[in-house]
Design a binder for these strands. Structure first.
Lengths: 159, 159
DNA sequence: CGTACAATATATTGCGCAATATGTTGTAAT
DNA sequence: ATTACAACATATTGCGCAATATATTGTACG
């Protein structure tokens, strides 16, 4: 367990917001894993979206999935071996294009997605309640992301 | 450069907030490094707080720094060799306790902190302006962190 | 004194991601 | 047809962090 004590909230420290948001990310991930374990979900938390994208596509290559997810296709390829080992996906040669290898969900993969799906409504409620409680975290982060994309810190500091 | 395209904002996905906050953390870090390079700051972005804690303490062991920073002392010890190599800190035996090794800032280390310090006022202004623009991101994240510490996701989902 | 235990430092290993490099196969231009 | 290039898959390497294990030294207590 990471040391989850104080985090500097000093506005003059350029990284303080980075540290805070990273801490939130970690906390969510570390609270998700036990939840998945209880529910018999063996999918790596970081690969859920991959499976979701795959079920939506029916079948897809690593490059397809990467495009769908906005990730690098190297990252997708790094994640796939674990999913293959867990028996959640299968890999096939593409008869039409020898470069491509096609992934498909197995029955076990569908089962896992169904288990995840069983939580989705409740999860939506939980997050909405959380935002009610603490304010619109995700809206705020989205806006901050966009603002920093439009005008990076370096530019802001020069003005 | 990480693929910085779309990120799922689907509330029903338990990890969406984790991904969002991680993206923010990454964006800040990747915008900080070039800024540091311009300013002749060679400190690893993630080790700034370590140097700050060290200058405040005057001298400190890895365990001291870990306590001050709320990090594991293993992590501190992992960061120190790089700072030693960069000539920013020195390591000394503690005459009073052979277990402890004491770190001190070198002149170069003080110089680096001075360079960082030269930005701090401006950085505070930039963040305040950012929060004016997009809302109180850091307040929201802090509250979310606290809320999840008080009542974890698993508990919230069961209710 | 000696024995258990606490505190410290450190090495090792594993995980997830980024970056880079390589090799293969399709495609388009000449 | 050859040549160049694009797309794809994959291996390798490195980074930062977490977790574990180990060794050393101090401390407290019998």
């Amino acid at each position: 367990m990471p040391a989850s004590t104080d985090i500097s909230t000093d506005l003059d420290d350029i990284s303080f917001l980075g540290r805070l948001s990273e801490a939130l990310s970690q906390r969510i991930e570390e609270q998700t894993r036990p939840l998945f374990d209880e529910a018999g979900i063996i999918v790596p938390v970081r690969s859920c979206s991959l499976l979701t994208a795959l079920v939506e596509a029916g079948e897809a290559s690593a490059a397809d999935l990467a495009r769908a997810l906005g990730q690098s296709h190297q990252l997708v390829i790094q994640k796939c071996p674990a999913l293959l080992r867990l028996g959640l996906i299968t890999q096939h040669a593409d008869p039409a294009d020898a470069r491509r290898k096609i992934f498909r969900l197995t029955d076990a993969g569908h089962d896992q997605l169904a288990r995840i799906d069983a939580y989705s409504v409740r999860i939506g409620e939980v997050y909405r309640a959380l935002f009610e409680e603490v304010g619109d975290v995700h809206g705020a982060i989205l806006k901050a992301l966009k603002a920093l994309a439009d005008k990076p810190l370096s530019e802001r500091i020069r003005e």
